[in-house]
Design a protein around this nucleic acid. Structure first.
Lengths: 212, 212
DNA sequence: CAATGTGAACGTGTTCACAGCA
DNA sequence: TGCTGTGAACACGTTCACATTG
């Protein structure tokens, strides 16, 4: 068992993990329809993917379908949510309570999906002690203690680019293993820590290539 | 010449195009240092990439380096900016002037990089005619005419998920070929139109996989 | 002689094609 | 019969290794 995970399936490519939330979202939409089974063909049409890719992706995690019928929608959603760890709630903290940070704090899309921002930090004296979106803004010195006390496992970075690396170093030192980064800058993180970047400017800059 | 682009280089993989803005950003930072040449080795350390990948990526677009020396930084930035089409200004429009749309309009990161939001649209009667961040909110019926008049080539979608597909159909029908989408929903676009998604929730949901 | 540019080797992800099962 | 699950074939992106050159 050299290249298997704990479920005896071969190691899962990261791209596959990145697609799982897309499946969950689409299948969740389909729960409202009257159908309760979906084929890889039908799901592929909705997601603009090949049926083979969907079947292969799902096969990394188990056998969720019935031959000749397809996949029971609600069963499959539940399985995938479980694979992704979406049945539980995740506590997050946010660092940087400037304009961007405030916008992220007031974003209503995270909570219903089980991602709750439980703490906010900043190094601006004039912000510390204030309440933003129901969160008491704390000094970054309290980061480690708060992460422990509030069982926080995800950090959201909304500081200006020049401050991002040192903030992230601090988050990593405090034990966070998952970071959602809004700072438009390249960052160094150690192995075992996961980061995702939200960077609309980079997205625009790569699209212009195709506009010429 | 079956698989070549107009510069006689082999077809460029999309992943390579996605990395070009990263190179531009990092190299632009390096302009402020005293060095004026960088090796693929050094750039790779900063970007956490292998030198080979950087050299291969760059080689799709030309020979920008000098053997034994490395790449002249400012020359390379200029070349890459030109490849990406970043020497010119790009006019954008935004559809959806709710909370998210307002936040995007007031984001200060686009303008300095040559992406200017020139028009805003909404279908909410109470918003139309108002001024948001210096933009007069127009009814969507004026989309096609405005795109033509203001030479807009990029559309930014900040409408609620259920409205996104029909808005995008309309943008595509009006001739837009590049779309930056903030709506958390899967979308169908025809070949030749490029879309990028900004979806922090999907990013979070894929990271939790590694937290279990 | 240091570092590029690039074919060739390699590895990884996608698609095919079909055996197997409801 | 219809559709899954999956090895095998394939395609594509990454890395290697070295000839080349300032």
């Amino acid at each position: 068992m050299l290249t298997s995970n704990q479920n005896n399936h071969p190691k899962v490519p990261e791209v596959v993990v990145l697609r799982l939330p897309l499946y969950v979202r689409e299948l969740t939409d389909m729960l409202q329809s009257d159908k309760n089974v979906v084929s890889s063909q039908q799901l592929g049409e909705r997601l603009q993917m090949t049926p083979a890719q969907i079947r292969k992706d799902l096969s990394y995690f188990g056998k969720f379908g019935k031959q000749g019928r397809g996949y029971p929608i609600s069963f499959l959603v539940n399985q995938l949510r479980s694979v992704l760890g979406l049945e539980k709630e995740w506590n997050c903290c946010i660092i940087g309570v400037g304009k961007l940070g405030k916008a992220v704090i007031s974003y209503t899309g995270f909570n219903p999906e089980g991602f709750n921002i439980r703490a906010a930090f900043d190094d601006d004296i004039s912000l510390i002690g204030q309440t933003v979106g129901g969160l008491y803004v704390q000094p970054i010195t309290e980061l480690e203690k708060t992460i422990r006390d509030k069982d926080i496992s995800i950090g959201i970075v909304t500081v200006p680019a020049p401050n991002a690396q040192k903030v992230i170093d601090r988050m990593v030192a405090s034990g966070l293993k998952s970071i959602l980064n809004y700072a438009p800058v390249g960052l160094h993180i150690p192995p075992g820590v996961h980061i995702r970047h939200v960077d609309p400017l980079l997205s625009l800059q790569s699209m212009t290539y195709y506009l010429k």
